[in-house]
Simulated assay, not measured.
Amino acid sequence: MRRIRYYSYGGPEVLTVEQADIPVPGPGQVLVRASAIGANFVDTLLRRGPSSGPIFDRPLPGRLTGDVVGTVEAVGPGVAVDQPASLVGRRVATLSEDAFAEYVVADLDWLAEVPSGLDVGAASTLPLGGPTALGALRAGHLAPGETVLVHAAAGGIGHLAVQLAKVLGAGRVIATAAGAAKLDFALDHGADVAIDYSADDWPDQVGKAAPDGVDVILDSIGGQTLLRGLDLLAPLGRTVVYGVASGDFREIPVTSLFALRSVVGFSLLAWRAADPEAGRRDVAEIAGHLAAGRLRTTVHACLPLDEAASAHRMFEERAHRGRILLLP
């Protein structure tokens, strides 16, 4: 089978197409033949290695994460013992740490069955994007009628967070993105106000849109964006950090929290480990919203697997709106 890995840190050009044996599922695992792979921005930082920041320092060879949509081809020992073929042939989605390949193995515990009629773009949000957006909003204890600020609102997770904030009852959703096309995209996905965060006065613009302050901020950028956002919070306002796309790991001054503001981090993997049942319920809830039309996924581009480097260039150029899919 074909797969993509990298054997040195660097730009998109280090991504290498190679031949490998089809993996064998172990106990509690299944083998999935991929039909589409949702790419994730974080892999561009991991691919660059230590230069991206200490948390992105991983050993080589590098493997690319992704949201794999495909069909179960085989099951490992201990899976469906009473009827071992019951999973074979089912359409599923799963998060994989070695996703850019024609076949992947997946843990049965986190396999999401794709509802009938769900297209591949929507299905690709079940393992990571949808549950992350939902989990971040809940970590911020969003209450009906509150104002939410979503940074990077045109991204793969951001455009889902904008919609889910409305589903959960937000009174006003303010979206930030860079460039007119992305601002229009955010408005089209339900934002009430869209602000270009490449403008130096973006906090002033947010302040005008939310004169009483913002109740919940979803921040996947970090750095200066995180620090400037703290001053926009209303009393008892909450910032949820679920990514550091800027690679800027600035410390939060303790004095900035004295105004009854709070900052909390959210990690989907940590959430699943802490409360597996709640994690599975979140996946089911996202599937329900997608099936009912309350949530929609936009796919910016579908590329052949061999063009993984092009997908990473789109991420780094901030050229994408919504998801980027690779097709084996």
Rank of each mutant, 00 (worst) to 15 (best):
S220C: 14
R33D: 02
L290G: 02
E307A: 12
V283I: 14
G145H: 14
E13T: 03
A165M: 14
G38K: 14
D212W: 15
L295G: 05
H312A: 06
T65N: 03
A210V: 11
D119T: 04
G117N: 03
L164R: 02
V244L: 04
T71N: 05
H300N: 14
G89S: 08
L183P: 06
R250F: 09
Y6A: 00
R90G: 00
D107M: 08
G247F: 10
Y103Q: 04
A80K: 08
R261D: 13
A308V: 00
V263P: 10
L218K: 15
L218V: 15
D215T: 08
S86Y: 05
Q205H: 09
S310W: 00
E13K: 00
D306E: 06
G155H: 12
L168G: 01
E13W: 01
W271M: 12
I157M: 07
V42C: 07
G145S: 13
F266H: 08
T94K: 04
G117L: 00
L187R: 09
A112Y: 02
R2F: 14
G171F: 06
V193L: 14
H141S: 05
A259L: 15
E13D: 15
I157W: 08
H312T: 02
A178V: 11
R228D: 15
R228G: 12
H289E: 07
V88D: 10
G130N: 01
R47E: 00
G140A: 11
V68Y: 01
P54Y: 01
P253L: 11
H320T: 03
D200P: 03
L64P: 07
D82Q: 14
F100Q: 03
A273H: 03
G223T: 04
S220R: 14
A175H: 13
A273K: 10
L233G: 07
D204H: 06
G78Q: 06
L325P: 04
A133L: 10
H300E: 12
G28D: 05
L118Q: 01
F185C: 13
I221G: 10
P12F: 06
L218R: 15
R91D: 04
T239D: 04
R296G: 02
E277H: 11
F100Y: 03
E18C: 07
F41C: 07
A106Y: 04
P59M: 12
W271P: 10
L118M: 10
A74W: 02
G130F: 02
R321L: 13
L111D: 00
R261I: 08
G171E: 09
D282E: 11
L187H: 04
Q205E: 14
G171N: 08
S310Y: 01
A209S: 10
V105S: 05
D282G: 10
E97H: 08
G28S: 01
Y6E: 05
I174T: 06
A199F: 06
A112V: 06
V81L: 03
G155F: 08
A199M: 13
G247A: 08
T147Q: 11
H159T: 05
L118I: 01
G10I: 01
L64Q: 11
V264A: 10
D201A: 02
A34Y: 01
G26L: 12
A161K: 10
V81R: 11
H289P: 00
D192S: 09
P23K: 00
V263R: 09
G243C: 02
E113A: 14
A112M: 07
F266L: 07
Q224M: 13
R47A: 00
G265L: 03
P59Y: 08
